[in-house]
């Protein structure tokens, strides 16, 4: 790894936590543009189809992950999925209406949580973990959404011979392949190489100081990220349960098409309840995060280190962690041609 020392936080430059309005827009636009371009490249990369399983790169996850690791995670996470929608779907005439909304929410949520986990972008394993978490959340939510679609779309889906198992198996295989390819090969590995190199160089171009572990970013779901995940999982479980319940009723008691309209309404109510829970959870998390921003959270640091399995990352000094990281040889021949 190159000896990228963090440039000292510049006096006078605003910290990424307290951005001006135009800087928020800058982060948003930068994240949107780069991920949009990355998606255009993904569109033309080849994919190998092995029966139902497609060995393809669904997106170059490292681009938005670098963005959420280096800049304010919220604005970068909101911008990146929009770049995909605008550059690939809208401009290429591939816009799928409501389907885009679900994809946007999944990816933005994943990236926001992933980016919030990063405390020091110079630590490669934190960035790698952020990439994995972001893609994992996106893909798992996507898989659940697909299954839910089948459950809504097919009458008495769980009574059809072989259908629930096959959907479950297909989704599980597909999403795991995606998590490995997009999350690790094209997510974690390039991101952990790229983020430390850009750290301290790209932020001054937007007129802001780099993110450092000393001053955590405000408005990130950091302290209670597990809390948000838990709330989300619970909410989704409740949705699935509600649908199963509803299908059950549909099969036994309710008949006729007027009454069938009753089913989706119950479903929407449960979705609404789940969303309310989620919003409340996020609000609570945010208030907690902003109130206890000064409190250093060494326990999460320990957990991160344990998750990354890096032996010496517990030490708080960035340089030590950098040198002790397992990965040292960088295959990316980076050059700094600034035009």
């Amino acid at each position: 790894m190159t000896t990228t020392t963090p440039s000292p936080a510049r006096v006078g430059l605003p910290h990424p936590g307290e951005l001006s309005r135009s800087q928020k827009l800058m982060v948003f636009v930068l994240s949107m543009t780069t991920f949009g371009l990355a998606n255009i490249i993904t569109e033309v990369l080849p994919s190998i189809q092995l029966g139902p399983i497609e060995l393809s790169i669904s997106y170059l996850a490292f681009v938005p992950v670098v963005m959420v690791s280096l800049f304010h995670p919220l604005w970068a996470a909101l911008g990146a999925p929009l770049g995909e929608i605008i550059f690939v779907d809208l401009l290429m005439g591939n816009f799928s209406g409501i389907g885009e909304l679900e994809g946007y929410i999944q990816l933005a949520l994943g990236l926001y949580i992933g980016g919030s986990l990063v405390r020091d972008p110079l630590r490669k394993w934190q960035v790698a973990l952020a990439a994995f978490v972001a893609v994992f959340i996106d893909k798992v939510l996507g898989g659940i959404t697909d299954i839910v679609k089948v459950l809504i779309g097919v009458a008495d889906a769980e009574f059809v011979e072989g259908l629930p198992e096959s959907i479950l198996v297909l989704e599980a295989v597909e999403q795991s392949v995606d998590i490995v390819i997009s999350g690790i090969l094209f997510g974690a590995i390039p991101a952990m190489l790229l983020a430390p190199r850009l750290h301290g160089r790209i932020e001054p171009l937007l007129g802001m100081a780099p993110r450092t572990p000393e001053v955590p970013v405000a408005q990130r779901a950091r302290i209670s990220a597990p809390f948000v995940i838990l709330a989300l999982v619970l909410g989704l479980v409740s949705v699935v349960a509600a649908i199963l319940d509803e299908l059950d009723l549909n099969g036994i008691v309710l008949e006729g098409e007027f009454v069938e309209n009753y089913g989706p309404q119950v479903l929407w109510i449960s979705v609404g309840v789940a969303l309310t829970i989620l919003v409340i959870a996020i609000l609570v998390a945010r208030s907690r995060a902003t109130s206890s921003i000064a409190a250093s959270s060494s326990d999460i640091d320990d957990r991160l280190a344990a998750a990354a399995q890096a032996p010496a990352t517990v030490t708080t000094e960035p340089a030590t962690a950098e040198s002790s990281a397992v990965e040292s040889a960088s295959p990316v021949s980076t050059d700094s041609t600034d035009k």
């Binding site: 800058m26 636009v29 930068l30 780069t34 670098v66 850009l198 937007l206 050059d335 035009k339």
Partner: peptide
């Protein structure tokens, strides 16, 4: 492709700032 994103991100950052400002 990976390597190209390094200068690309820096250049885009510069251009974004110009445009937004």
């Amino acid at each position: 492709t990976f390597a190209a994103f390094y200068p690309l991100m820096l250049n885009t950052a510069k251009r974004t700032r110009t445009t937004v400002e």
